[in-house]
Simulated assay, not measured.
Amino acid sequence: MIDTSLKVYSLLLLALVSVLPGSVFATEYIYRDLIGNTLPPQKCAARTEAEAAASEEYNLKKHARIFCESQGYGWHVEQRKSAGKVICEECGEGGGGDRDRFHCHLEDVVVQCKRIKPGSVGLIPGQG
C-alpha cells in the first residue's frame, strides 16, 4: 500500500511539473551591439609585426570583453560580429632608423553583448 501511494504521488508530481509553462524556467536576455576601437600598443614594431599583433585573437577577445564590461554590471560578450579593420600609424620621428616602425590597432570592431533581463529570474526583491 505504501509503495502504490508513493508511486501515485510521484506520478502526480511529474504531471504537475510537465504542465507548468516552459517560460517559468527560461532566462531572458537583453542584447546590445557595440562598435569600438582597440588601443595601439606602446611599443613600435615593423609593419607586419604590428598588424599581426593588432589582429591577434587574444587582443580581440580582451577588447571585446572590455567593451561589454564598460556597459555596466552583468554585461558579457555574446559574440564578435566583426573584427574591424587594421589601422597603422607611423611612430618614427626625425631621420632615425625608426621610420619603418608602426603602431597598429583595430577600428570598428562590432561586438554583441548580453545581460540577464531584470525580473526574468527573480531579481526584483519581494517577487517570486
Rank of each mutant, 00 (worst) to 15 (best):
G122V: 13
E89P: 01
S120P: 12
R32S: 12
Q112I: 02
K61V: 01
I87R: 06
A26S: 10
L12F: 01
S55L: 01
L6M: 07
E56M: 04
E69C: 03
E89N: 11
H76L: 07
L12S: 00
S70Q: 10
V8F: 08
A26Y: 03
Y9D: 06
R32P: 06
A83G: 05
C91N: 05
E89K: 15
E78C: 05
Y58C: 05
G36A: 13
Q79S: 12
R32A: 12
K85W: 02
L34P: 11
R99K: 13
V86Y: 02
E51F: 02
C104Y: 02
N37R: 10
G74A: 08
A50V: 00
T48D: 12
Q112Y: 01
G122L: 13
A53E: 08
L13N: 02
G22P: 01
G122W: 11
G128Y: 14
C88V: 07
G72A: 06
C88R: 05
L123Q: 15
L11T: 00
Y31C: 09
I116M: 13
S5K: 11
L14R: 00
K43A: 11
P41A: 15
G36L: 09
F102T: 01
G97T: 12
F25N: 01
E57G: 04
A53Y: 03
E89M: 06
I30V: 12
N37A: 12
G126M: 14
I87C: 06
G97S: 14
I35Q: 14
E93W: 12
D100R: 07
G119P: 08
G122C: 14
D100K: 05
S82A: 14
A46K: 08
V24S: 05
D98V: 06
T48N: 12
S23P: 00
F25W: 05
S120W: 08
C91F: 07
A45I: 00
I87V: 14
C68T: 03
G97A: 15
K81I: 09
C104V: 02
Q79C: 03
C88D: 07
S70C: 04
E78N: 09
E90G: 15
G92W: 04
T27M: 06
P40G: 13
G128S: 15
T4Y: 08
R32L: 14
H103W: 07
E51K: 14
L123E: 15
Q79G: 07
Y73W: 02
L123Y: 09
